[in-house]
Design a protein around this nucleic acid. Structure first.
Length: 482
RNA sequence: GGUGCGGUAGCCAAGUGGUAAGGCCCGGCUCUGCAAAAGCUGUAUUCGUCGGUUCGAUUCCGACCCGCACCUCCA
């Protein structure tokens, strides 16, 4: 059963299938502009794409995931100059940080991660095609603009009316769109190539139109078609990219190639809100992963919190949602541990996707998988996971059923990118029990066995002062850090 | 003004033309010397408001109220 998700172009839910059975499934996602640490809003989008990719792979598709790095624009240039380092060193630094955060959030690396700067020749080649085809023109300063009126179905993605576009003279920020200032023929025309300006410093490249740098939109068109072909399967990004970025990508790509189906499917995810408000620097609610970790959050819990809402709905992110997520993960771990015990396995054996027998079984987790396949309904799937987990706790469950359930759980958690038992591994070193604590624990246990409850309780108080507590069972106890 | 989305329990969040998944929190029970942990279990006569269609609507239609996003380089 193919995975079905919403397509922005047709405004409908469509199955995700390669053009021919067995063919590679090409998905292109607009990546980050590396001028600082990415914030959790960026990661929500990348995380949703990561879940989609994992699900597609689990469904048997040969996915080729391409996600670019935008490493030249006003912000990267301005910041690198401010720090007095080269653009290359500057963007390398933040690309590295981005990768580290992605790893922490358990995101699969894209198969190809092209840099915009390294693909300037491809961009120039595409611009040349557009100029030759009458879709672009050079202005007096050596810039090149895309001629929007040469593209008859411009606006088809965002469903915008071209006439209103051309007459619009202010943007949402209230600033005036002055066509004359840029020598543009129309305010809706956009830059393909930006002529070199003094403020660019050393950051310019040669082109048939003179020195300069590429416009933002052309980067993605050139890189996506270079790695995935002139028409490919799916293009994704945050909903804000729908217009103008994706609209412009469609226009320039289809005008350059002459083909009308640049991307077969447009996959957009809704924005993240923080504490009920739009994220913004001025509100001080623009969290990075490091910010959250500093507040005590763990990356797995952040991942869970960020994917726990449906991708087409705005998600209101709060610190409490991360705490709730940590509790939910712990609950899954407990139930998984029981299943593992039933099968005679240990948490160390659980590495999604769990390979048991042929690993084809879904067990009680089939409903969760089916829900995920239905427009990537992560919150619905999570609900079905917990329902299945309750059922799996039934003492009457056979080992055979437990193994099937474990296989299904491993697969659905793989799709969601939720790793279990990571905290224990990390804490193994940190939780080393100091000898005095161990001695005190043993003494308390002995007192308790001797029914000296007052003494035992007193020693429990001492343990707590040392930051430890004793979890007693019938046959023994375990010391854990508070 | 244009385009689009949403209002479901204390919080978060699915879903369906036939009388509301799940998570967090909270309550109860079991277990326990007491706790903790763990397991079980309980909590929306109700799904923004008002109409309409229907045997029946939270789910379809209309109106309204409220909130949100995008509208030229923000994921």
């Amino acid at each position: 059963m193919p995975i079905r998700v919403h397509d922005t172009l047709s405004r409908s839910i469509k199955p995700l299938l390669p053009k021919q059975p067995g063919a590679e499934y090409g998905m292109y996602c607009c990546g980050p502009t590396v001028y600082g640490p990415a914030h959790i809003g960026n990661f929500r989008t990348f995380l949703v794409q990561d879940v989609l990719r994992r699900a597609l792979q689990l469904d048997g598709l040969a996915v080729k995931h391409v996600r670019n790095i935008t490493d030249v624009d006003d912000k990267t240039i301005r910041q690198s100059q401010a720090e007095k380092i080269s653009l290359k060193d500057f963007t390398a630094k933040w690309t590295k940080k981005f990768h580290a955060d992605c790893d922490a959030l358990n995101m699969l690396a894209p198969h190809v991660e092209p840099s915009a700067v390294e693909h300037i020749p491809h961009q120039i080649a595409m611009i040349e095609k557009l100029v030759a085809g009458g879709h672009a023109y050079k202005t007096g300063d050596g810039s090149v603009y895309f001629k929007v009126c040469s593209c008859h179905d411009y606006g088809k993605l965002a469903h915008l009316d071209r006439d209103s576009l051309r007459t619009q003279d202010t943007n949402s920020a209230g600033s005036v769109n002055d066509a004359d200032e840029y020598e543009r023929e129309s305010v809706s025309d956009f830059a393909l190539w930006k002529a070199r300006k003094p403020a660019d410093g050393e950051n310019f490249w040669p082109s048939p139109w003179g020195e300069g740098r590429p416009g933002w939109h052309i980067e993605c068109s050139a890189m996506s078609t270079h790695y995935l072909g002139e028409t490919f399967d799916l293009h994704g990004g945050g909903i804000d990219l729908c217009f103008p970025h994706h609209e412009n990508e469609i226009a320039q790509s289809e005008c350059a190639t002459g083909k009308k189906d640049f991307a077969a499917h447009w996959f957009h995810s809704a924005h993240l809100m923080v504490d009920g408000a739009k994220m913004s620097k001025s509100l001080g609610n623009l969290y990075t992963l490091d910010d959250l970790v500093a507040k005590g959050a763990t990356p797995p819990a952040v991942r869970y919190a960020l994917i726990a809402g449906h991708y087409r709905s705005q998600l209101n992110f709060t610190l409490k949602s991360v705490e709730d997520a940590a509790g939910a993960i712990a609950k899954i771990e407990k139930a998984a541990t029981k299943l593992l015990e039933k099968c005679g396995l240990s948490p160390a054996d659980f590495a999604p996707p769990v390979v048991l027998e042929k690993n084809t079984a879904w067990g009680a987790f089939l409903p969760a998988w089916e829900t995920l396949c239905d427009d990537l309904n992560v919150p619905g799937a999570l609900g079905k996971i917990f329902t299945a987990l309750h059922a799996a706790n039934d003492p009457a469950l056979t080992v055979e059923q437990a193994r099937a359930d474990l296989s299904g759980l491993g697969k659905i958690l793989y799709a969601l990118g939720i790793r279990l038992f990571t905290a224990k591994k990390d804490a193994a070193g940190a939780d080393e029990i100091p000898t005095e604590v161990a001695a005190l624990g043993a003494k308390r246990w002995a007192a308790k066995q001797a029914k000296d409850f007052a003494g035992a309780d007193a020693m429990r108080g001492e343990l707590e002062k040392l930051g430890w507590k004793s979890l007693d069972r019938k046959d023994g106890y375990a010391l854990v850090k508070l």
